[in-house]
Design a binder for these strands. Structure first.
Lengths: 223, 223
DNA sequence: CGTCCCCTTGAGTTATTTCAACACTCGTGG
DNA sequence: CCACGAGTGTTGAAATAACTCAAGGGGACG
């Protein structure tokens, strides 16, 4: 199955040493942009980690599968975010397109070289890794000590913050993705949404559009 | 309360620009070593993150507290491990001594300088951060999708691996620490230990000494 | 010897999961 | 245009895993 396309970035003015792709504000290295269809795989678990990725448009999830079918969504990545940066030689998670996506791809070696030659670039990459670390720590707290409604409220609060939403959020991911992100079942996620709606915290217009009725109450529910 | 002591490291040969403290194999910067009593605080939540720490001896835990008293142990740190490395200006967790500890302390600024001047040092620090990230990802999986016995077995497996234990492990931390690390109650942790013992996976000689009866079975239980 | 702290065990309760049924949306094809 | 089916989300009822509350055991230390 070929569910992606290489979509060479148009060079623009003055880019010659390969097509330049921006990875963070201060880091641009040769690379290209690819399109991925909804639910297609960007890279697989245990695959060689030769590339690093940045979401140009769309949303990506990183996923862990257990042998018995239990699934865990480790993170969602929005436009502008970098993923696939690994310590070892292999990807420890698999990455999939939640929506149709355009994704910038660069050689890891090129990024390593940029980091070695440019201190500022190295620090930006460092900052990226540490931000991931802190998101993960927050998520850990959510998973270890919070109830179902708190988790869902926390998830919504995170999405509101990350998309800089004012009056409502679109959720591109399915209930199943949310459940596997929060360590719940889809039924429990669904019930928590309904409860938040009953409590006047949110409004639902279709499963994937959430209106913010009371942001303070949402923050409270997230505890 | 003064529950720590500054224990100047003896300079050794040729160290002159301040006492040198090793942070990782390739990174040594000026610093000092302090002693902390069991259960004393190394640094507090929301405190300025001006220092970085390395465990010389003993075990340290990093902890998150929720307003309503719920507690989460984010990680345990053994001898040789670095903690307290933050992205922002403040510590997001608090660090406490699980046992009496000796801890090497360096100025964060000194470490930043070392990283800026020495590419190899920067890469070692990067590796540290990424290793933390991966531990955290594994822990996330454990918390989101595993049952009580699986969590406890996973915890034991982690401790066995990290202490390079052959026939058994000493657990310096209390049941309460383990519970807050695994997102369970002390009662459930206790029951899970008993069940692993009944199933012939481990042996218990006192609450804090675990004998490995069947490593394969332990790995199975951890799933 | 007694006290304190930590750990274990039991019994009843609660939150979440499981299983099952049904509703809605969206293409496709008659 | 409507019928159909697949995919996705909601809801209810029963089952279960973990939690809470309560009591008791055992070691360390004064």
């Amino acid at each position: 199955m070929r569910d992606f396309d290489i979509d060479r970035i148009d060079g623009g003015a003055g880019v010659d040493a390969g097509k330049a792709v921006v990875i963070t504000d201060g880091v641009a290295v040769p690379g290209f942009v690819m399109s991925f269809a909804r639910n297609s795989e960007v890279y697989g678990e245990e695959e060689a980690a030769g590339f690093v990725y940045r979401v140009v448009s769309g949303v990506v999830r990183t996923v862990h599968m257990l042998s018995d079918g239990r699934r865990q969504v480790a993170a969602f990545h929005y436009a502008g975010e970098v993923f696939g940066l690994e310590a070892g030689e292999l990807h420890r998670l698999c990455a999939e397109a939640v929506t149709d996506c355009r994704i910038a791809v660069v050689h890891r070696a090129a990024l390593d070289r940029a980091a070695r030659e440019d201190g500022a670039a190295a620090r930006e990459l460092w900052a990226l890794a540490v931000r991931d670390l802190q998101r993960l720590q927050d998520h850990l707290l959510l998973l270890s000590r919070k109830g179902a409604v708190e988790r869902v409220a926390g998830f919504l609060a995170e999405m509101v913050e990350r998309t800089h939403a004012e009056d409502g959020v679109d959720l591109p991911m399915s209930r199943s993705d949310i459940a596997d992100y929060l360590g719940l079942t889809i039924e429990t996620v669904s019930r928590s949404f309904t409860q938040l709606e009953r409590d006047g915290v949110i409004g639902l217009s279709g499963a994937r559009r959430v209106a913010l009725r009371n942001r303070d109450a949402l923050a409270d529910c997230a505890a």
